[in-house]
Structures are given as structure tokens and as C-alpha cells.
């Protein structure tokens, strides 16, 4: 792997729901300005792992997370961490696009409003920039004040992405962002992510192998709560070191 600065690093991360441990110690680094794909069959723990990275597991009852997760060399589970600030630094896009039943404009500017933004001109700029980055500006620029829920699923997903981008994050986490979308909408999201890579660190959970191979620089394969192997995407797909990875890639299970 090429040596680059890491944005996020995890060490021996374990997650339990009640007494049931669903993630058995994952150690992984996420290089800055790269796309990392977490792939694996359903229930392998990839989404659970992703949710640890911005502490959205905290919102679920009975979840315990152990191990170390550092964001820019700082422990995000430390006692003095401002979780609210952390979540704007490390944004998350979910599988189902769920924009608020507000206007597109209000959706995008929401996180800035929460931080106290009142200035109209600045808000306009942020909305336009975020929507452009999410590659949906041209489709919605004439109806910014219409409900975001009047858009198609793919458009809604990109508006949600724009909402996350408007909070000026460093890292974007995506939890199967295209699995509820048709192929054309998925392709648009993928292109958008590739364009965003220069400015953000991206982690995407997917069980779509082609998607992982198309857009990611680094791929991690998880199975039954264990990290089987991680490395440069090309190497993982061309010559996996582990038999399980090879079996998964060849469609022997999944």
C-alpha cells in the first residue's frame, strides 16, 4: 500500500449488542482522501463497524464499543469528546434517503442552521456549493424551495449527501447508499463520490462487489464479525490472500 496520512484509525474494535458480540476486534486505517470500501455478506458487521466511526452506535440501546478509534490522532470515544461536533466532522449517509419533509434548501442548510448560521447570502452560497458537490444542482436549482420529498430516490440520496457536505465534514461515511436505487441513479452517486475524493475521506459499506471494485482505493473484507483481509482494491480483487475472500469474490457465498 502507498504510504499516506491516515484520517481514521481503528485498533481492535469490538462491538456487543447486549451480551452478543457482533464485531470481534477490527484493526484498520482509513487513508486521507481515499475511498475505502467495506464489503462482506449481510450480517458480517460492516455497518456496525461503520457506525462506530462517528459514534452513531451511541444512539442504539445496549451497545458497547471497546477498542480504540482515532480521528486525526484523537480518541473519539474519549470522555471529553463533543459527540455533536464529531458527527459534523464525520458525516453519514444512510441506505434509505430520508430528507426532512422540508424544502430542498432547508434540508441542505439544516446542519449550518443548527450551528447558528443566520446570514442569508452565506447560506445561499453553502447550499449552492453543497448541491454542486453532490452533483444535483442542475436538477434542483429551479425548485430549491419545493419539498425534498417530491424528488426521486436517487435525487433524495444526493440531497442527503449535500446536507452532510454542507456541514463541512472531513470524512463521509456511506452505509450502502445505492442499494435502494436503480442502476442509473447508483452510477450518478458513484461518479459523485469519485469527484469528492480529492477533498474528503470516504468510507463506503457495500455488498455490491462491482461497486467496490469500481470506486474504492482500499477494500476491507469482513466475515462473521472478523476482518478477513484489507488492502489495495486491485490486489484484493486480483489476488486475494485468504481463501474466504476468494470464495466470496467468486460468488461461492454471499
Amino acid at each position: 500500500m502507498i504510504m499516506t496520512e491516515n484520517s481514521l484509525t481503528t485498533k481492535d474494535v469490538k462491538v456487543s449488542y447486549g451480551k452478543y458480540e457482533s464485531l470481534h476486534g477490527v484493526t484498520l486505517a482509513f487513508p486521507k482522501n481515499k475511498i475505502t470500501a467495506l464489503m462482506g455478506p449481510s450480517g458480517c458487521g460492516k455497518s456496525t463497524f461503520l457506525r462506530c466511526l462517528n459514534r452513531s452506535n451511541d444512539l442504539l440501546p445496549d451497545v458497547t464499543v471497546s477498542g480504540e478509534i482515532e480521528f486525526e490522532q484523537q480518541d473519539i470515544y474519549g470522555p471529553k469528546v463533543n459527540v455533536v461536533a464529531l458527527r459534523t466532522q464525520i458525516g453519514m449517509v444512510y441506505q434509505q434517503p430520508t430528507p426532512f419533509p422540508f424544502s430542498i434548501y432547508e434540508n441542505v442548510i439544516f446542519s449550518q442552521r443548527m450551528m447558528g448560521m443566520r446570514e442569508r447570502r452565506q447560506a445561499d452560497e453553502i447550499v449552492e456549493r453543497s448541491l454542486r458537490q453532490a452533483a444535483i444542482w442542475d436538477e434542483v436549482k429551479d425548485r430549491l424551495h419545493r419539498s425534498a420529498q417530491s424528488l426521486s430516490g436517487g435525487q433524495q440520496q444526493r440531497v442527503c449527501l449535500a446536507s452532510v457536505l454542507a456541514g463541512a465534514p472531513e470524512v463521509i461515511l456511506l452505509d450502502e447508499p445505492t442499494s435502494a436505487l436503480d442502476p442509473i441513479a447508483s452510477a450518478k452517486i458513484e461518479t459523485t463520490l469519485l469527484a469528492l475524493k480529492d477533498s474528503y475521506t470516504i468510507v463506503i459499506v457495500t455488498h455490491n462487489l462491482q461497486q467496490a471494485s469500481r470506486i474504492s482505493d482500499q477494500t476491507a473484507f469482513l466475515l462473521n464479525g472478523n476482518l478477513i483481509e484489507a488492502g489495495a482494491t486491485k490486489e484484493i480483487f486480483m489476488k486475494p490472500r485468504e481463501q474466504a475472500t476468494s470464495d466470496y469474490l467468486n460468488g461461492k457465498f454471499g
Partner: peptide, 13 residues
Amino acid sequence: PSYQKFAYTLGCT
């Protein structure tokens, strides 16, 4: 509830 999730993602207290 997914609106709540989205709100927290966007840095709501």
C-alpha cells in the same frame, strides 16, 4: 425515527 437519525448525523443536539 429515520428523521431523528438524520438529524443526529447532521450534528443536532
